[in-house]
Structures are given as structure tokens and as C-alpha cells.
Nucleic acid binder design. Sequence first.
DNA 1: TAGCCTATTTTGTCCTAGACAAATATTATT
DNA 2: AATAATATTTGTCTAGGACAAAATAGGCTA
Lengths: 304, 304
Amino acid sequence: MSKKQSLDSLLEAGKCRPIGAVERDTGIARDTLRVWQRRYGFPNPVRNPRGERHYPAKQVRRLQLIRRLLDQGLRPGKIVPLNEPALHQLEAELCIMPGVEHQENVVALIAHLREHDTEAIEVLLGEILAIQGLRRFVQNTVAPLVKIVGESWAQGQLDVYEEHFMSQLLIRLLNTEIAKLEIAASPNPVLLGTLPGERHGIGLLMTAAILASENVAAINLGVEMPLDQLVRAAEKFNSSVLGLTFSGAYPYGSVRSHLQELRARLPATTNIWAGGHAMGRVRKLPTGVIKIISFDELPIATIR
Amino acid sequence: MSKKQSLDSLLEAGKCRPIGAVERDTGIARDTLRVWQRRYGFPNPVRNPRGERHYPAKQVRRLQLIRRLLDQGLRPGKIVPLNEPALHQLEAELCIMPGVEHQENVVALIAHLREHDTEAIEVLLGEILAIQGLRRFVQNTVAPLVKIVGESWAQGQLDVYEEHFMSQLLIRLLNTEIAKLEIAASPNPVLLGTLPGERHGIGLLMTAAILASENVAAINLGVEMPLDQLVRAAEKFNSSVLGLTFSGAYPYGSVRSHLQELRARLPATTNIWAGGHAMGRVRKLPTGVIKIISFDELPIATIR
DNA sequence: TAGCCTATTTTGTCCTAGACAAATATTATT
DNA sequence: AATAATATTTGTCTAGGACAAAATAGGCTA
């Protein structure tokens, strides 16, 4: 009886999850979960009578922690074999808080986010926008906010759903502001998008907002556009500029080769702007590709 | 040399895609693709020198067609072995296009999209919206438009970038309209999101717009929310309803099991609404899960 | 110091063919 | 016509091996 109960508590009360569910919850593919077990001994799921893997909730949480560390650029071989305290220590060490001079506004917004106070967030965002104007709002408020929310999530201080919630609020707000400006269509609009593998589109939207505030027409194609599609779109829309963003999680080596291929396939009349955190590591770029670390560097004058 | 060239022409000019890409493009799981091949002889991909499956573009399109038929309630064993003409005939027989009287607008919008006439699309969308009002605009114009754009893409009649472009326009427009309505925050907001693997968020936005038009507060968490996060969010926001959408591309086998798991983990006070094209094929649902095939069925009265 | 070529390690994805439970269809029984 | 029993269909999971693409480290040049 006690034995049966302990098995139950492991399989049911312990909320074990089959490999498909863990794949969904962690974003780590089935094959990868199995090969990690083979190579590193972790995860080490319970088996049901049929021999199928059932992952205890604790291991799922640890996998999510591992996932966060991977997103910060660490490699599986270095961290998957580590025990839990070591992982938590690593996470704490990597917590590089960029200057405490977070603007009050951003701190207040995060506080409201933690309290799930939708109304307060929307009101405060509106107030800040009214004071700063769209361009400074994007640069001084939205960009730091996105960065800090992303980092808080990576450190486990914010839940995934809280990050998504804030993203959706910002998407709605920025789209609304862009629509308000009613920029006239251009024969050479700036084209914005990300390459496959890059799923963060908020940088594109921030760029579009700044361009709109400068009365520049932009077309945002959103995330994960296959390379050939970007080329076709740039040709069809006769774009003067193709703007791409690469977040910190983007695979390092591919940035340059992708930009080189794009440069080779795009007409010479189309310039390439490359922005986002991952660009900080890229040193040399193909000629005709402009690296943009800060929104201040957007060479808007060149296309007007 | 000539041998290498012929291989190239087969694998590259023919635009063959590895199984992982086909899984993403069709929403059919790897294992399922392999087991269909074993059982029904289709798909029948080319093999590269390593023995890996490479699916010609034509077979991918046929898989997407099969996908659409499955969504209408047909079973794999009946249709996967069929040849292409038979499939197209089946689709033609099953094709139930909603009210033909609003098709004119949609046809005109698609025509403008083909011509890349941003301005014309925006003007026309604005006019239709002014005439129909937000709710009917979403039901009669946006929904059919999204469906037809998606199908045109699946059939190779529209490029990926054209589909993305239209999506972004609609996202901007709907978000703007929702913002205009300035719905007051609710203590029990409707929560909207999709499960991991489901990357189409436009259905959520359409739902949010209709809810807003009925003065119902909704929180859109966007796409690919891990299941446990949806549960936590529903608890934290004290939601009366969790709304999910499953597009035609969603791995159909998992819909039911995911909904069952969600039902088990959510508090009984939270209802579940499940919508989207993939719901057309799901017959029996756990009690406490409401299937929503048409926006008309949204039980808005129950939460007001 | 920075770039670049080469060798080594790491890492994710794909392979096979069988197994089986859950979902669905079909037939039998009340 | 509804219910129960049986049969079929169908998606998911298993195993360990394999290998290319990517990341790292070492050595060389300017």
C-alpha cells in the first residue's frame, strides 16, 4: 500500500509529464531530450509500465532553467550535467544588471506588471508617451523596458506569460501610434523583417515607430521571413532599405554569412541595416551592410 | 560534374525540404509523416545521399491539401492514399464558402495585395470597416480574407512575404480599433492565447476585436504559450474564460489531449473556449470545453 | 591585436521498424 | 433507437547509431 502510494505520488501527485508535453513546456525537442539523457545523464525521467518517459515536475523546472541559460549563450555540454545549485549559481552570476539607473518609469512599469495591473500599465505608458513623444518614448522607455523584461524572464523573475502580456501591450500601443501618423505610401519603402530562427519582432516594431515619427514609410513583414522571400519582397516593393534585427539569442556564426548572402542577392540599390543585440558581437560586415547598435544611428537622412 | 549537377537540380532547383521543415510547414508531425509513408505510400520523398527524406515542393503542397481535408473531418486512411485529382475533387465537393455576397471585397483586397498596392488595401479596408462596423468587419471580411490568403499561399498562388504583409496590416488595423474602444479593465478578463506549435495569432486578435466591440475586456497573450503558463495566467488574472485558437496547421492529434490536460489543471470557474479551423474535425471534447466554429457562437452573454 | 585558415569537439536532427493505447467505426444486443 | 461489445484506425513512443552543421581552440600571417 505504502509502496503503491509512493509510486502514485511519483507518477501522479508529482505531476509527471510525457515527453511530448515536456517538449511543449520547455521548447526542447524530443530528440534533444533523449540525447541529453544519453550523453549527460540528465534529464532522468521515470518510466511508466510501457517504458515511456515521464518527467517529474522538478526536472521540467530544471529543464526550463537550463533553457534560460542556453538562451544567454551557454552551451549544453557545460550546463546540462551540472546539479541544480550550480545552475542557480550560474544564473545569479550571469545576472549582469546594467546600471541601476533604470528610469523610474521602467521600474514602475515592471512593478505594475508584477501586480498584473493592466490599467495602471496602460495609463502610465500613455502618460510617458505624451510627455516624451513617440521617438523618445521608443528609445528611452520601450527599448529599456523590453530589455529588462527579457532579462527578468531569463532570470526566472518574470513568468513567460507576463513577458508575453507586456509584449502584446507594447505591440498594440506602437501599432496604434504608427497608424495615427498616417504616413503616405512611398515608392521606396523601408522593408523590415527577421530571418528564420529569430522570433523577436518587437525590435522591428520599434524601428517602424521611429521611422514613422520621422515620416518615413516602412513595411513590416514580421518575424522569420525566409531569405529568398526577403529578396523578392525588396525587389517587388522596390525598397531602398532592408532592415533586419538579431536578438541576443540568435546563433552567432550565421549572422555574418546570412548578411553576406543577402547582400549578394539583393540589388545594389537596396541598403541593408542590421540591428539588435547580437550585432554587438559581429565585428566586420560585408560592405553595404550598416550595423545599428542604437536607434540614434538609424541613417534616416540618407533615405529621405 | 554532370552527376553533381543533376543531384543539385533535384535537391535544390526542385526545392526539396527536409522533414523538420515539412513538419513546420504542414503541421504534420515527423513521426506521422514517416508512418504515413510506411502505411499509405505517401508522401514518398526523395532521399539525399545520407538517406534523409527530402520532400519535393509538390508533395508538400499535396500534404497541405490533405491537411485541409483532414480539418474538414475526413480520416487519413481515406484520403492520404488518394491521388491528386481525387483530392482536389474531394475539396471541391466539400468546399462550403461562407456568404458569397461579401466576396467582392475580399477579391478586391487580394487583387490589391497581388499588385502590392499598400495604399489601396488600407483605403479599402477602412471603407469596409466604416460600412460594416467592427464586429461584422471581422466576421465577414477579415476572417474570409485570412482564410483565402492562407489557402492561396498553401497553393503557391501567393508568396510568403505577401501573406506576412497582409497579416501585419490586419494586425495593425485590429489593434488600432481595439485601442480606440478603450475597454475598461475587468476583474475577470477573457484570456486569449495559443499553445506551443500554433504560430498563427490572427484568430486571437479577431476574437479580441469582437469581444471589444461587445465591451468585454480581453487579454491577448499571443502565440505559443506553454500550457502551464496559460494555467498560471488564468489563475493570476482570475479569468472567467480561456480562449484558444487552433489553425488548420495545428497537429490535429494533440488538440484533444491538450484540451483535456488544460481542463484538468484549470480551476472549474474558468471556462475554455476552443476555436479555429482545426476544431472542425474534433468531435468530442471534454466537458467544460466549448467548441467555437463560428464567431457567432461566442457565448459572450455568459460572461457579461 | 586582429584576421583567417585548419583541426577538434560539440550538438541537434534524422534514421529504422516495432509496439500499443486512445480514438473512432462497425457490428451485435437489448 | 439506444447501448454494449468488438474491430479497425491512427498518432505517439521506443532504441542507439550516424553524421553534418556549428562552435571552439590552435596555429599562422599581416
